[in-house]
Design a protein around this nucleic acid. Structure first.
Lengths: 157, 157
DNA sequence: TAAATCCCTAGTGTTTTACTAAGTATATAA
DNA sequence: TTATATACTTAGTAAAACACTAGGGATTTA
């Protein structure tokens, strides 16, 4: 599982699409302007999204992009996997030379964790994110998630 | 939130430490050999982990690394944030020019998602992973998480 | 004193990221 | 029919990140 800025760009763009695609297609120019992502980069991202049928393009003036299917049938995992190719991490593919299973144990544990995280974002759909946004404040205030900088280092030092 | 191979290396190394650090410190050479990570790269990762007091180094022969605190008090989020520096994504920091709040809405939604994922891996401790490994099979068989390649593209095309 | 370990800094090839540029294809509208 | 607006495609590129090599120093044990 990989979760980098590239995936964020894709999720953000798809969100924009879900929010603004109610009445007619949304152009990449719009998304580019709305989200501050370069047009050509968006085109690359959407090439990947299109390949997975997550979006549908309409050419010509008045064209743009629609979601490829209903927003409640597109998971965050779908989006991220489309642009951020899933990479296998473990290298010991069935080999026996893994130090008495020790090495493979940590690898299996990582696989478990990786799968857990995947299943977690698999459960969150675009529609979830949209409906979540309905009731909350849409202002520009930002609050850092609590506990991100757990500076135990200061205390312990 | 960023979740790349670098973070995986760190989590894997910490898992190795949790598993093998019961009786005496674990050397980076051991981890390097166990997990197939270059020694010098491990040293860089551990410099970051040390800075956050997630590990404690013991110098000299017979030395190595201990966990900086109990395994149940180290979350996956702690580890990943230590090596994979949290990066802010949104660029509209309180600015008003965000197209009638539209842009900020998607950004806020992303922030929410990001926080959710963070809180999720915040809840998983090293001890959780270790205890999870106790009962299961430690063999080298690998099974791909179900539903990762959701090739709706084939069906829909 | 020698060796094993942590610790630190600098450099490096490769890949990824995010972008620019320059087109082609297709549908709409004048 | 022609111009335009869009999707689509390919190639190139600067900067960053990744994962590593190299070469040391500092500290502790034997």
């Amino acid at each position: 599982m990989r979760l980098s800025t590239k995936g964020r760009y894709a999720v953000t763009a798809m969100l924009d699409l879900a929010l603004n695609g109610q009445d007619g297609p949304v152009t990449l120019s719009d998304i580019s302007e709305n989200q501050g992502i370069s047009l050509s980069y968006l085109e690359q991202l959407f090439a990947a999204l299109r390949a997975k049928n997550l979006v549908r393009g309409v050419r010509g003036p008045g064209g743009g992009y629609f979601l490829g299917r209903e927003a409640d049938e597109i998971s965050i995992a779908n989006i991220i996997c489309a642009v951020d190719e899933w990479v296998e991490f473990t290298r010991c593919q069935g080999r026996e030379d893994c130090r008495g299973g020790q090495r493979c144990m940590t690898h299996n544990l990582w696989d478990d964790l990786s799968r857990q995280i995947y299943e977690f974002i698999e459960e969150i759909s675009l529609a979830d994110l949209v409906s979540r946004g309905q009731g909350s404040n849409h202002g520009c205030h930002k609050e850092k998630p609590a506990g991100i900088q757990d500076d135990l280092s200061e205390q312990a030092a």
